[in-house]
Simulated assay, not measured.
Amino acid sequence: MSDTASLKYERDDLFQVGAARVLFCGKSFIADHTGALYWPAEETMIFSDLCLDKGSYLAEDDAVLPPYDTLSVFEKVEDALSRYDPARVIALGESFGGPNVYRRGLSIHDIDWLIDLMDGRDWYWVSGEDDPGIPEKVGGTVCPNVSLASLRFRNEPVRAPITHEVAGGVHPVATFTQYDRVTRARCFVSNGMRMLLPSVGHYGPGTNVLDKTLDPLMGHEGLFVWVVSHGQAFPIAAGQLLGEDEVEDASLM
């Protein structure tokens, strides 16, 4: 087998069942069913809003939530890392659930698990000033943003008309019609200039991609959406998208 044929096979093999090809600012990515975004050319995986141990943190406010969110997130992260084996990981947005995460949140087992996942990789925690701190034992590089091959990765989008930005912190969701049913799911969304990533964590608040609060960031015209639903990541046509005020009408059709 020639080197060219071998390289083609290896690249095609990355597009596993449940993944979708994403083209953004002239670069090729893979939207994974775990909610991760993989950049083959840079051997880089991007996660957004892991929200580790957020269920425990919210319980302090008397919110009754299942205590399995951290386990599920770790399983998704481990699954994505084992399949793509990136050299670099960029974690955007709210990676940890609250300011007490090290003192009374993540267990020693959880911290050891996270350290094992990070082992041998360049790991960047992209977070804002108001985000919980990263446990010192965990390691990695904490920074306000990462620049890589003309793209800028931020914990949340800049409120300005810019381009080549990949951001977390928004928790985008899409409500759409498919097979005469209305479905709501986490999603990747882009307007060709910036991309917002879905929350990998379970308790991130969802923002509809057609919500007016996103108009300054994305607009409504020319949106590209890839939803994460039923173990798959797949594109949705803009005409299938519904605003929250349209959901009730659609469900009555």
Rank of each mutant, 00 (worst) to 15 (best):
L210V: 03
P66C: 12
K212A: 04
N100K: 13
Y68P: 00
Q178V: 02
E221K: 08
H220E: 11
F234H: 10
P205L: 01
V228F: 08
V101W: 01
A250Y: 09
T44E: 11
E244M: 00
D53Q: 12
A59H: 13
F234M: 14
P161W: 00
L197I: 05
W123Y: 13
R21D: 02
C51T: 04
S82V: 03
L196D: 06
S251F: 00
E156F: 04
M253E: 13
V64R: 15
T207E: 10
S150G: 05
Q240H: 09
D13P: 03
R88K: 14
F47K: 04
R21I: 03
A238H: 11
A185G: 03
C51F: 09
S127L: 05
S48K: 04
L81M: 14
L241W: 13
M1T: 07
F153S: 14
V89H: 06
S190G: 06
A160M: 11
M195N: 00
G18N: 04
A80H: 04
I108E: 00
T163F: 11
S229E: 15
R103E: 10
W123D: 05
F176G: 08
V101P: 06
L196Q: 06
K8W: 13
D130G: 04
L50M: 08
D62H: 15
I90C: 05
S199P: 05
C25W: 05
D62S: 15
M45E: 08
M1L: 02
T70S: 14
H109K: 15
F96D: 01
A250T: 01
Y57V: 08
L197K: 06
G128L: 05
S150F: 00
Q178T: 01
T163E: 14
Y38M: 10
D211Y: 05
S72N: 15
Y9K: 15
F234A: 11
Y57H: 14
S127R: 15
E248K: 10
W226Y: 14
F153N: 13
E136T: 05
L65D: 02
V64H: 14
L58R: 03
S147I: 11
C187M: 07
P66K: 12
E129C: 10
E10C: 12
G26Q: 04
R88M: 12
T175V: 06
M218V: 10
E94G: 04
L114K: 01
S199I: 03
P132C: 01
I134K: 03
A41T: 11
R104E: 12
H33K: 15
L117W: 05
L81R: 11
L197D: 02
H230S: 07
T213R: 15
A41M: 12
T163R: 14
L7T: 08
V158P: 00
A233Y: 09
D13C: 08
G98H: 00
P66F: 10
P135T: 06
S72F: 12
A91G: 12
E221V: 07
L114C: 09
S150D: 12
R83T: 11
A237H: 14
Y84A: 12
